[in-house]
């Protein structure tokens, strides 16, 4: 069938090849531990950005609490792997599902709100999650959760990134993705076209939360140690910045944006005193000079109509 067409086979081969090459470079110590650290950060940021892009970039729902879902995922994975001694896969799945559940519970009431009100409500929820973690002694409270087994390696990271990017881009390039985009464009018209806007908003929110949870698991099981303040309001902002920098509604943009911003951030570590000052100027310049992001204006792909409108109708162009 079409699943086994040339393009897909090539894509699959490229995905495997990239994995093998990097793995070999790690084995050969060409990629040292510092580089590995940065690769992990990039991977986690990609997952976070792609998930938030689905919510904010495509569906147009302004969320300032995305780090809260990462927080939920990180703590769940920490509990499952460190306290309950379960394998990492269980931790990852539990993190994703746990965060998705929280996303669902938060999303149903709050997604009735619009624009800045939604932003501020999600910010509130993100903070509430963080404060709850600060107060639960079982997970270490303010002093943090220690001795989490370090399971995250290149293999886990890479395939989690691939899965999240594939799932979200498949979702977006489909009737469901078009529904989400139409909500972002004009919610009233979308509803009038027969789209259950509440359902899709909550769905996008839940999927985004699911992957943020997985990103949290990868984070917790890489850094051994987590504390609630790592998942505060500023982390949510960082994710949002990545999405806007990459281009709202562009998956490629989120991937590239996450990689670039992580590199910039790593580079700025050398100037600890001025790091945040420079970062703020970089942010400001992006917003003034590149308000639509890196991939904000993209040409429409023309090939999909040739077969009388096939499934690859690239709705990514916004």
């Amino acid at each position: 069938m079409k699943i086994l067409n040339r393009k897909n086979i090539l894509g699959f081969a490229a995905i495997i090849a990239f994995y093998v090459i990097v793995q070999l470079l790690i084995n050969a110590d060409v990629i040292d531990s510092y580089l590995q650290l940065n690769i992990v950060i990039i991977g986690i940021n990609i997952i976070l950005a792609v998930g938030l892009n689905l919510i904010t970039g495509f569906t147009g729902q302004f969320s300032l609490g995305h780090a809260g879902f990462m927080c939920v995922g990180a703590y769940i994975s920490a509990i499952v792997t460190a306290k309950l001694g379960q394998p990492f896969l269980v931790g990852i799945i539990a993190s994703g599902l746990g965060a998705a559940l929280v996303g669902l519970v938060i999303g149903i009431p709050t997604l009735r709100l619009k624009g800045d009100y939604l932003a501020i409500a999600t910010l509130g929820f993100g903070e509430i999650i963080r404060i709850l973690m600060l107060n639960i002694d079982y997970v270490g409270g303010a002093s943090g959760f220690n001795d989490i087994p370090q399971y995250t390696n290149w293999t886990w990271l890479y395939f989690m990134v691939v899965i999240s990017v594939l799932v979200i881009s498949n979702f977006v390039k489909s009737y469901a993705g078009r529904a989400c985009i139409s909500i972002g464009e004009d919610e009233i018209a979308s509803e009038a076209m027969g789209i259950n806007t509440t359902f899709y908003k909550v769905l996008a929110f839940t999927i985004g939360a699911f992957f943020a949870g997985i990103a949290g698991a990868l984070y917790a099981n890489y850094f051994y140690f987590i504390k609630p303040d790592s998942f505060g309001f500023m982390k949510s902002i960082d994710i949002l910045v990545t999405v806007v920098f990459g281009g709202m509604g562009s998956i490629t943009g989120s991937v590239v944006g996450a990689a670039l911003l992580s590199v910039i951030s790593a580079f700025l570590q050398r100037y600890p005193e001025l790091r945040m000052v420079i970062y703020s100027i970089v942010l400001f310049s992006i917003m003034v000079f590149l308000p639509r992001g890196l991939m904000g204006i993209k040409d429409i792909k023309l090939n999909f109509l040739k077969r009388g409108g096939s499934a690859d109708g690239d709705s990514e162009t916004r």
Binding site: D116, A119, M248, R275, M276, I281, M287
Partner: peptide
Amino acid sequence: TRIAALITAISVSLFLEYGTMY
């Protein structure tokens, strides 16, 4: 866009915070 304006505001906030700190 609203989001661009909001992020600009955040960048100003960071600038004032860390500029002062410097």
